[in-house]
Protein backbone atom coordinates (compact mmCIF):
# COMPACT_ATOMS: atom_id res chain seq x y z
CA UNK A 1 0.00 0.00 0.00
CA UNK A 2 2.74 2.42 1.04
CA UNK A 3 4.84 1.24 -1.86
CA UNK A 4 2.00 1.92 -4.26
CA UNK A 5 1.48 5.37 -2.78
CA UNK A 6 5.15 6.23 -3.26
CA UNK A 7 5.12 4.81 -6.76
CA UNK A 8 1.97 6.71 -7.74
CA UNK A 9 3.27 9.94 -6.22
CA UNK A 10 6.47 9.60 -8.20
CA UNK A 11 4.46 9.07 -11.38
CA UNK A 12 2.33 12.12 -10.55
CA UNK A 13 5.37 14.36 -9.99
CA UNK A 14 7.03 13.13 -13.16
CA UNK A 15 3.90 13.75 -15.23
CA UNK A 16 3.56 17.22 -13.72
CA UNK A 17 7.16 18.04 -14.61
CA UNK A 18 6.84 16.76 -18.17
CA UNK A 19 3.52 18.49 -18.79
CA UNK A 20 4.81 21.80 -17.44
CA UNK A 21 7.70 21.63 -19.92
CA UNK A 22 5.27 20.82 -22.74
CA UNK A 23 2.87 23.64 -21.87
CA UNK A 24 5.73 26.13 -21.53
CA UNK A 25 7.44 25.01 -24.72
CA UNK A 26 4.21 25.08 -26.69
CA UNK A 27 3.50 28.67 -25.66
CA UNK A 28 7.12 29.64 -26.33
CA UNK A 29 7.16 28.40 -29.92
CA UNK A 30 3.89 30.12 -30.79
CA UNK A 31 4.65 32.93 -33.23
CA UNK A 32 4.07 36.48 -32.04
CA UNK A 33 5.76 38.58 -29.38
CA UNK A 34 3.64 39.22 -26.27
CA UNK A 35 5.20 42.64 -25.76
CA UNK A 36 4.46 43.66 -29.34
CA UNK A 37 0.88 42.39 -28.96
CA UNK A 38 0.42 44.26 -25.68
CA UNK A 39 1.67 47.58 -27.09
CA UNK A 40 0.06 47.38 -30.50
CA UNK A 41 1.54 47.44 -34.00
CA UNK A 42 2.42 51.10 -33.90
CA UNK A 43 4.68 50.96 -30.82
CA UNK A 44 8.35 51.83 -31.25
CA UNK A 45 10.99 49.09 -31.09
CA UNK A 46 12.47 50.76 -27.98
CA UNK A 47 9.17 50.61 -26.12
CA UNK A 48 8.75 46.93 -27.06
CA UNK A 49 12.28 46.14 -25.89
CA UNK A 50 11.60 47.97 -22.62
CA UNK A 51 8.41 45.96 -22.02
CA UNK A 52 10.23 42.73 -22.87
CA UNK A 53 12.72 43.57 -20.16
CA UNK A 54 9.89 44.32 -17.71
CA UNK A 55 8.23 40.96 -18.39
CA UNK A 56 11.60 39.21 -18.31
CA UNK A 57 11.08 37.96 -21.87
CA UNK A 58 14.64 38.95 -22.80
CA UNK A 59 16.13 36.27 -20.60
CA UNK A 60 16.96 32.71 -21.77
CA UNK A 61 13.96 30.37 -22.08
CA UNK A 62 15.23 28.00 -19.39
CA UNK A 63 15.44 30.86 -16.88
CA UNK A 64 11.94 31.94 -17.83
CA UNK A 65 10.70 28.36 -17.42
CA UNK A 66 12.15 27.87 -13.96
CA UNK A 67 10.95 31.31 -12.90
CA UNK A 68 7.42 30.40 -14.03
CA UNK A 69 7.57 26.92 -12.44
CA UNK A 70 8.92 28.33 -9.17
CA UNK A 71 6.05 30.81 -9.15
CA UNK A 72 3.50 28.03 -9.69
CA UNK A 73 4.91 26.03 -6.79
CA UNK A 74 4.61 29.11 -4.53
CA UNK A 75 1.10 29.78 -5.86
CA UNK A 76 2.25 32.86 -7.78
CA UNK A 77 0.87 32.75 -11.31
CA UNK A 78 2.50 35.95 -12.48
CA UNK A 79 1.11 39.14 -13.97
CA UNK A 80 -0.88 39.42 -17.17
CA UNK A 81 1.00 41.00 -20.09
CA UNK A 82 -2.21 42.62 -21.24
CA UNK A 83 -4.21 43.74 -18.21
CA UNK A 84 -1.18 43.97 -15.89
CA UNK A 85 -3.32 42.31 -13.22
CA UNK A 86 -2.24 39.37 -11.03
CA UNK A 87 -3.37 36.12 -12.67
CA UNK A 88 -3.56 33.94 -9.53
CA UNK A 89 -6.72 35.47 -7.97
CA UNK A 90 -8.55 35.39 -11.32
CA UNK A 91 -7.79 31.72 -11.80
CA UNK A 92 -8.81 30.95 -8.22
CA UNK A 93 -12.21 32.68 -8.62
CA UNK A 94 -12.91 31.15 -11.99
CA UNK A 95 -11.77 27.69 -10.94
CA UNK A 96 -14.48 27.50 -8.27
CA UNK A 97 -17.14 28.19 -10.87
CA UNK A 98 -15.79 25.53 -13.22
CA UNK A 99 -15.47 23.08 -10.36
CA UNK A 100 -19.20 23.43 -9.62
CA UNK A 101 -19.95 22.80 -13.29
CA UNK A 102 -17.70 19.78 -13.59
CA UNK A 103 -18.88 18.20 -10.35
CA UNK A 104 -22.53 18.79 -11.27
CA UNK A 105 -21.88 17.37 -14.74
CA UNK A 106 -20.22 14.31 -13.23
CA UNK A 107 -23.14 13.79 -10.85
CA UNK A 108 -25.57 13.96 -13.78
CA UNK A 109 -23.41 11.51 -15.74
CA UNK A 110 -23.29 9.03 -12.86
CA UNK A 111 -26.98 9.34 -12.02
CA UNK A 112 -27.76 8.57 -15.67
CA UNK A 113 -25.12 5.93 -16.33
CA UNK A 114 -25.20 3.73 -13.22
CA UNK A 115 -28.87 2.66 -13.41
CA UNK A 116 -29.12 2.80 -17.21
CA UNK A 117 -25.94 0.76 -17.75
CA UNK A 118 -27.00 -1.81 -15.18
CA UNK A 119 -30.45 -2.24 -16.70
CA UNK A 120 -28.92 -2.50 -20.17
CA UNK A 121 -26.60 -5.25 -18.97
CA UNK A 122 -29.25 -7.15 -17.04
CA UNK A 123 -31.67 -6.97 -19.98
CA UNK A 124 -29.15 -7.09 -22.80
CA UNK A 125 -31.24 -9.54 -24.78
CA UNK A 126 -34.56 -7.85 -24.10
CA UNK A 127 -36.31 -4.99 -25.88
CA UNK A 128 -35.98 -2.57 -22.95
CA UNK A 129 -32.19 -3.08 -22.88
CA UNK A 130 -31.87 -2.59 -26.61
CA UNK A 131 -34.04 0.55 -26.50
CA UNK A 132 -31.83 2.07 -23.79
CA UNK A 133 -28.81 1.07 -25.86
CA UNK A 134 -30.15 3.00 -28.84
CA UNK A 135 -30.86 6.08 -26.72
CA UNK A 136 -27.36 6.02 -25.23
CA UNK A 137 -25.89 5.57 -28.71
CA UNK A 138 -27.71 8.74 -29.72
CA UNK A 139 -26.46 10.51 -26.59
CA UNK A 140 -22.86 9.66 -27.42
CA UNK A 141 -23.24 11.34 -30.80
CA UNK A 142 -24.54 14.69 -29.46
CA UNK A 143 -21.83 17.26 -28.63
CA UNK A 144 -22.19 19.14 -25.32
CA UNK A 145 -22.67 22.57 -26.90
CA UNK A 146 -25.47 21.29 -29.13
CA UNK A 147 -27.16 19.70 -26.12
CA UNK A 148 -26.81 23.07 -24.37
CA UNK A 149 -28.40 25.00 -27.24
CA UNK A 150 -31.24 22.48 -27.49
CA UNK A 151 -31.86 22.72 -23.74
CA UNK A 152 -31.94 26.50 -23.90
CA UNK A 153 -34.41 26.38 -26.80
CA UNK A 154 -36.78 24.06 -24.95
CA UNK A 155 -36.53 25.06 -21.28
CA UNK A 156 -35.65 28.75 -21.50
CA UNK A 157 -37.13 29.96 -24.78
CA UNK A 158 -40.19 27.70 -25.26
CA UNK A 159 -41.18 26.85 -21.72
CA UNK A 160 -39.52 29.66 -19.82
CA UNK A 161 -38.83 27.41 -16.82
CA UNK A 162 -35.14 28.20 -16.46
CA UNK A 163 -32.95 31.24 -17.10
CA UNK A 164 -31.26 30.97 -20.49
CA UNK A 165 -27.84 31.82 -19.12
CA UNK A 166 -25.89 33.58 -16.41
CA UNK A 167 -24.19 32.65 -13.16
CA UNK A 168 -24.91 33.44 -9.51
CA UNK A 169 -22.54 32.36 -6.73
CA UNK A 170 -24.24 29.86 -4.38
CA UNK A 171 -23.58 32.04 -1.33
CA UNK A 172 -25.40 34.97 -2.89
CA UNK A 173 -28.63 33.28 -3.99
CA UNK A 174 -28.75 29.46 -3.66
CA UNK A 175 -32.08 29.10 -5.52
CA UNK A 176 -30.88 31.12 -8.50
CA UNK A 177 -27.55 29.31 -8.39
CA UNK A 178 -29.31 25.96 -8.76
CA UNK A 179 -31.67 27.20 -11.48
CA UNK A 180 -28.76 28.46 -13.52
CA UNK A 181 -26.70 25.32 -12.86
CA UNK A 182 -29.33 22.85 -14.13
CA UNK A 183 -28.95 23.32 -17.87
CA UNK A 184 -25.14 23.62 -18.06
CA UNK A 185 -24.85 20.56 -15.82
CA UNK A 186 -27.28 18.61 -17.98
CA UNK A 187 -25.62 19.54 -21.24
CA UNK A 188 -22.23 18.55 -19.86
CA UNK A 189 -23.39 15.49 -17.95
CA UNK A 190 -25.92 13.87 -20.29
CA UNK A 191 -23.40 13.35 -23.06
CA UNK A 192 -20.77 12.02 -20.66
CA UNK A 193 -23.50 9.94 -19.04
CA UNK A 194 -24.30 8.36 -22.39
CA UNK A 195 -20.62 7.45 -22.87
CA UNK A 196 -20.29 6.20 -19.30
CA UNK A 197 -23.46 4.11 -19.66
CA UNK A 198 -21.74 1.95 -22.23
CA UNK A 199 -18.81 1.32 -19.88
CA UNK A 200 -21.11 0.56 -16.97
CA UNK A 201 -23.00 -1.85 -19.23
CA UNK A 202 -19.89 -3.79 -20.24
CA UNK A 203 -18.54 -3.80 -16.67
CA UNK A 204 -21.81 -5.17 -15.32
CA UNK A 205 -22.10 -7.70 -18.16
CA UNK A 206 -18.62 -8.91 -17.26
CA UNK A 207 -19.50 -9.24 -13.60
CA UNK A 208 -22.77 -11.03 -14.39
CA UNK A 209 -20.71 -13.80 -16.00
CA UNK A 210 -18.47 -14.22 -12.96
CA UNK A 211 -18.58 -17.44 -10.95
CA UNK A 212 -18.94 -15.59 -7.66
CA UNK A 213 -22.21 -14.14 -8.85
CA UNK A 214 -23.45 -17.67 -9.46
CA UNK A 215 -22.26 -18.56 -5.95
CA UNK A 216 -24.25 -15.61 -4.62
CA UNK A 217 -27.33 -16.85 -6.48
CA UNK A 218 -26.74 -20.38 -5.20
CA UNK A 219 -26.72 -18.97 -1.66
CA UNK A 220 -30.26 -17.76 -2.23
CA UNK A 221 -29.80 -14.16 -3.35
CA UNK A 222 -32.17 -13.01 -6.07
CA UNK A 223 -30.54 -11.61 -9.22
CA UNK A 224 -30.66 -7.93 -8.32
CA UNK A 225 -29.51 -8.24 -4.67
CA UNK A 226 -26.75 -10.58 -5.85
CA UNK A 227 -25.57 -7.97 -8.32
CA UNK A 228 -25.88 -5.20 -5.74
CA UNK A 229 -23.95 -6.92 -2.95
CA UNK A 230 -21.36 -8.78 -4.97
CA UNK A 231 -21.22 -7.03 -8.32
CA UNK A 232 -21.12 -3.28 -7.71
CA UNK A 233 -17.71 -3.06 -6.14
CA UNK A 234 -16.18 -5.36 -8.71
CA UNK A 235 -17.79 -3.51 -11.60
CA UNK A 236 -16.73 -0.16 -10.14
CA UNK A 237 -13.02 -0.68 -10.89
CA UNK A 238 -13.20 -0.27 -14.70
CA UNK A 239 -15.92 2.39 -14.38
CA UNK A 240 -13.79 4.52 -12.05
CA UNK A 241 -10.99 4.42 -14.62
CA UNK A 242 -13.26 5.81 -17.28
CA UNK A 243 -14.65 8.37 -14.86
CA UNK A 244 -11.13 9.69 -14.26
CA UNK A 245 -10.50 9.95 -17.99
CA UNK A 246 -13.88 11.60 -18.54
CA UNK A 247 -12.94 14.37 -16.18
CA UNK A 248 -10.55 15.67 -18.78
CA UNK A 249 -13.35 15.64 -21.34
CA UNK A 250 -15.67 17.38 -18.85
CA UNK A 251 -13.13 20.16 -18.28
CA UNK A 252 -12.80 20.70 -22.01
CA UNK A 253 -16.58 20.47 -22.37
CA UNK A 254 -16.90 23.10 -19.64
CA UNK A 255 -14.86 25.53 -21.75
CA UNK A 256 -17.48 25.35 -24.49
CA UNK A 257 -20.52 25.12 -22.23
CA UNK A 258 -19.39 28.17 -20.24
CA UNK A 259 -19.42 30.11 -23.49
CA UNK A 260 -22.92 28.88 -24.43
CA UNK A 261 -24.37 29.72 -21.01
CA UNK A 262 -22.28 32.86 -20.39
CA UNK A 263 -20.68 31.50 -17.23
CA UNK A 264 -17.55 33.17 -15.81
CA UNK A 265 -15.51 30.00 -15.35
CA UNK A 266 -12.01 28.89 -16.22
CA UNK A 267 -13.14 28.13 -19.76
CA UNK A 268 -14.31 31.65 -20.49
CA UNK A 269 -11.13 32.97 -18.86
CA UNK A 270 -9.13 30.77 -21.23
CA UNK A 271 -11.07 31.92 -24.28
CA UNK A 272 -10.75 35.57 -23.19
CA UNK A 273 -7.03 35.02 -22.75
CA UNK A 274 -6.77 33.55 -26.24
CA UNK A 275 -8.67 36.39 -27.92
CA UNK A 276 -6.65 39.04 -26.01
CA UNK A 277 -3.36 37.30 -26.87
CA UNK A 278 -2.74 37.14 -23.12
CA UNK A 279 -0.14 34.39 -23.41
CA UNK A 280 0.82 33.99 -19.77
CA UNK A 281 -2.81 33.81 -18.72
CA UNK A 282 -3.48 31.08 -21.30
CA UNK A 283 -0.35 29.23 -20.22
CA UNK A 284 -1.41 29.35 -16.56
CA UNK A 285 -4.99 28.26 -17.21
CA UNK A 286 -3.88 25.36 -19.38
CA UNK A 287 -1.41 24.32 -16.69
CA UNK A 288 -4.11 24.46 -14.00
CA UNK A 289 -6.37 22.25 -16.14
CA UNK A 290 -3.51 19.79 -16.64
CA UNK A 291 -2.79 19.72 -12.90
CA UNK A 292 -6.47 19.09 -12.16
CA UNK A 293 -6.64 16.15 -14.58
CA UNK A 294 -3.40 14.61 -13.29
CA UNK A 295 -4.52 14.95 -9.67
CA UNK A 296 -7.83 13.27 -10.36
CA UNK A 297 -6.13 10.35 -12.07
CA UNK A 298 -3.78 10.08 -9.10
CA UNK A 299 -6.82 9.86 -6.81
CA UNK A 300 -8.40 7.28 -9.12
CA UNK A 301 -5.31 5.12 -8.73
CA UNK A 302 -5.65 5.28 -4.96
CA UNK A 303 -9.35 4.51 -5.23
CA UNK A 304 -8.54 1.20 -6.96
CA UNK A 305 -6.78 0.07 -3.84
CA UNK A 306 -9.81 0.93 -1.73
CA UNK A 307 -12.06 -1.00 -4.12
CA UNK A 308 -9.94 -4.06 -4.79
CA UNK A 309 -8.19 -5.77 -1.88
CA UNK A 310 -6.03 -7.76 -4.30
CA UNK A 311 -4.03 -4.59 -4.93
CA UNK A 312 -3.20 -4.19 -1.24
CA UNK A 313 0.06 -6.02 -1.37
CA UNK A 314 1.01 -7.68 1.88
CA UNK A 315 -2.31 -6.98 3.59
CA UNK A 316 -3.30 -9.86 5.75
Amino acid sequence: MVLRLIERTAVLLASLAVSSVLVFAFMAILPGDPARVALGVNASDEAVAELRRQFGLDRPLTTQYFEWLGGLVRGDFGTSYVSKAAIGPQIFDRFQVTLWLVVAGMVVALVVAAPAGTVMAARHRKVSGLALSAVSQLGVAVPAFLAGILLIMVFAVKLGWLPANGWTPPAQDPAMFLKQLVMPALSLGLVQGAVLTRYVRSAVLEVLREDYLRTARAKGLRPFPALWRHGVRNAAVPVVTVLGLQLATLLIGAVVVERVFVIPGLGSLLLDGVSNRDLLLVQDVVMVLVIAVLLVNFLVDLLYVALDPRLRVGSR
Partner: peptide, 24 residues
Protein backbone atom coordinates in the same frame (compact mmCIF):
# COMPACT_ATOMS: atom_id res chain seq x y z
CA UNK B 1 -36.34 -20.60 -5.96
CA UNK B 2 -34.29 -18.08 -3.99
CA UNK B 3 -35.85 -19.45 -0.80
CA UNK B 4 -34.85 -22.99 -1.78
CA UNK B 5 -31.28 -22.25 -2.91
CA UNK B 6 -28.79 -22.12 -0.10
CA UNK B 7 -31.43 -23.26 2.38
CA UNK B 8 -32.76 -26.68 1.30
CA UNK B 9 -30.35 -27.16 -1.56
CA UNK B 10 -26.73 -26.04 -1.77
CA UNK B 11 -23.99 -26.44 -4.32
CA UNK B 12 -20.20 -26.55 -4.43
CA UNK B 13 -18.83 -25.64 -7.85
CA UNK B 14 -15.79 -26.88 -9.71
CA UNK B 15 -13.63 -23.77 -9.76
CA UNK B 16 -12.75 -22.53 -6.26
CA UNK B 17 -10.44 -19.80 -7.57
CA UNK B 18 -13.32 -17.76 -8.98
CA UNK B 19 -16.26 -18.91 -6.86
CA UNK B 20 -15.78 -16.31 -4.12
CA UNK B 21 -16.21 -12.56 -4.34
CA UNK B 22 -12.66 -11.12 -4.46
CA UNK B 23 -13.68 -7.87 -2.76
CA UNK B 24 -15.40 -9.34 0.30
Amino acid sequence: MSRVRGRHLAMVFQEPMTALNPTM
